[in-house]
């Protein structure tokens, strides 16, 4: 088991007072809170900081931790081992955070912060509590969102062991994602959240769909946008070309006299059947032209009377 140096995690001195510790916590919480942080591994950091604060803000816990820290109970491998005779505390203790704490924490202060007991002997008959809802996010590739299918998801729930102690447990489910979901779509799995206590209802699992960026398709709600490069001759003369779509390649017709930036709407070919694929044309030029092609362009220039900058008037 790895020894957790809570002072180092919080970036405070060993003799820091409660006020300094609270300030350090606030700063770190602001930096790493998963809801507001842009840092990598924010969630992991936030858990560590939360755990450190849980111990250092509490006088009793801190004293206990300091003793243990001084004992230097580490093996040759640098790993932490509780000294012989050390008893993990359990029960009766108030833990404010709805903790998801490390093995290290549990070995000192007991499982799950040693906080609550699920079924107090005295209250076993009447203690009812609805299981907690779990909110999670599932990132899908566009193809997965389009086709739907089974995805395995893993999340933490709170339940109680055979002694009635609350604990965190990882739960894994296979979920059938319906075809055509888009970003922000919520899916509910009724009763798959935390188990209810004393016969109360289970919580629900809510999954919010997120979409991974795709190299070609840009997502716009249930619609998709695709930029399609075409040659100047295809734009002028019209053409039948092949383009990719989530359902497989499609043949589309570029109308004659098309222009760059022009949009073509392919109904029902978007992320879902209710969505469209919007093709945006982009005129692409070859990097070099042959002498003959140059000559043909010269003839073309002499032939066409087109000023694409006519809008500028006298400004240029």
């Amino acid at each position: 088991m790895e020894f957790k140096d809570y002072y180092k995690i919080m970036g405070v001195a060993e003799n820091a007072d409660t006020d300094a510790i609270r300030k350090a916590y606030r700063k770190l919480a602001r930096k790493y809170h998963p809801d507001v942080s842009k840092e990598a591994d924010a969630e992991q950091h936030f858990k560590e900081v939360g755990e450190a604060y849980e111990v250092l803000k509490d006088k009793d816990k801190r004293t206990e931790y300091d003793q243990l820290r001084k004992l230097g109970a580490r093996g040759h491998d640098g790993n932490f081992r509780p000294p012989p005779g050390w008893q993990a505390r359990n029960g009766g203790q108030q833990t404010s955070a709805d903790g998801d704490f490390s093995d290290f924490f549990s070995s000192i202060f007991g499982g799950f912060g040693g906080a609550q007991q699920a079924g107090h002997r005295t209250a076993r008959q009447t203690f009812r509590r609805r299981g907690e809802d779990v909110h999670s996010t599932l990132a899908l590739l566009l193809d997965e969102a389009h086709q739907g299918g089974d995805k395995q998801i893993s999340f933490q729930i709170q339940d109680s062991d055979e002694h009635g102690h609350l604990r965190r447990r990882r739960k894994t489910l296979k979920v059938k994602i319906p075809a055509g979901v888009t970003r922000g779509q919520q899916i509910r799995l009724k009763g798959q959240g935390g188990p209810g206590m004393g016969g109360a209802e289970n919580g629900d699992l809510f999954i919010e769909i997120d979409l991974a960026p795709h190299p070609l398709f840009v997502v716009d709600g249930k619609h998709l946008q695709l930029t399609v490069p075409i040659t100047p001759t295809e734009a002028a003369l019209g053409a039948s070309i092949k383009i990719p779509s989530l359902g497989g390649p499609l043949n589309i017709k570029i109308p004659a006299d098309s222009s760059g930036g022009q949009k073509l709407r392919l109904v029902g070919k978007g992320l879902s059947k209710a969505g469209d694929l919007i093709v945006i044309l982009r005129i692409s030029m070859p990097k070099q032209h042959s002498d003959q092609a140059r000559e043909l362009y010269r003839q073309l220039a002499a032939e066409t009377q087109y000023d694409p900058r006519a809008d500028w008037g006298n400004l240029a």
Partner: peptide, 12 residues
């Protein structure tokens, strides 16, 4: 818990 067969989902 072992992976269960697909559980029913509800589009919200």
């Amino acid at each position: 818990s072992p992976v269960s067969p697909s559980v029913p989902v509800e589009l919200v």
